[in-house]
């Protein structure tokens, strides 16, 4: 019956494709799938990048709703993703940290724009040179300001990252390995032979 239905061009239900009627997956994959598809951003728009972020959220051309993230929650307690959009001044830094702390785990951070990633063009007394001085960042997005498509690309890369995130024991192990690698890594300005 099933092969004939394909030939007739009718859509097949999921249950017909599965060999024995069971779907097998891992908890990690399921958690990753669910987490990435409804990532709720927290509104942390600071400066110019915030306007591009608003365009991503509200302009029909760069609709973020198709990726499940159009609910920009004002309350950090309900948000998963903090998109730091704009320059973080020294006065704003404690506020940023407090909002990050108020977010419930699991939480991710995208540093949107050059100012959030590294201080950008403002290398001076007033701007924190990269929000990774304050919060752990998952994705750095360059641009001044990044185009809305770039922000969507960053969010999609984050989706992939979340999809493949380990949980539980595996996660603790990966964290340990990453930390060890970072401890033994060579500082960037001592990497020789790359400028030639």
């Amino acid at each position: 019956m099933a092969p004939r239905r394909i030939g007739m061009g009718l859509k097949m239900g999921l249950e017909e494709k599965i060999p024995s009627g069971f779907v097998l997956t891992t908890v990690e994959k399921l958690a990753g799938y669910m987490r990435k598809n409804s990532l709720w951003p927290a509104t942390f728009g600071l400066a110019c990048c915030a306007i591009e972020m608003m365009a991503v959220g509200s302009a029909a051309k760069y609709d973020i709703a198709r990726f499940g993230g159009e609910v920009f929650r004002a309350s950090p307690r309900q948000a998963d993703l903090m998109i730091v959009a704009g320059r973080v001044s020294n006065k704003m830094a404690p506020v940023l940290r407090q909002i990050y702390d108020q977010m419930t785990a699991p939480k991710w951070v995208i540093a949107m724009g050059a100012c959030a990633s590294s201080g950008g063009m403002f290398n001076n007394y007033a701007i924190v040179q990269g929000v990774d001085h304050i919060v752990p960042v998952d994705i750095y997005l360059p641009g001044c300001p990044p185009r809305p498509e770039m922000l969507l690309d960053a969010i999609l890369k984050l989706h992939e990252q979340i999809n493949n995130e380990k949980i539980g024991v595996n996660r603790a192990q990966i964290i340990k390995e990453v930390e060890l690698a970072a401890m033994n890594a060579k500082p960037t300005h001592e990497m020789k032979g790359l400028l030639a």
Partner: peptide, 27 residues
Amino acid sequence: YLHTGIEKNIEFRNWTQGTTFVTRMDY
């Protein structure tokens, strides 16, 4: 909370480079 010191930054740049800084005030 968004003080960037743009005005002081310009004092270390060219007159033409001042445009790129000044542009980001009222974005």
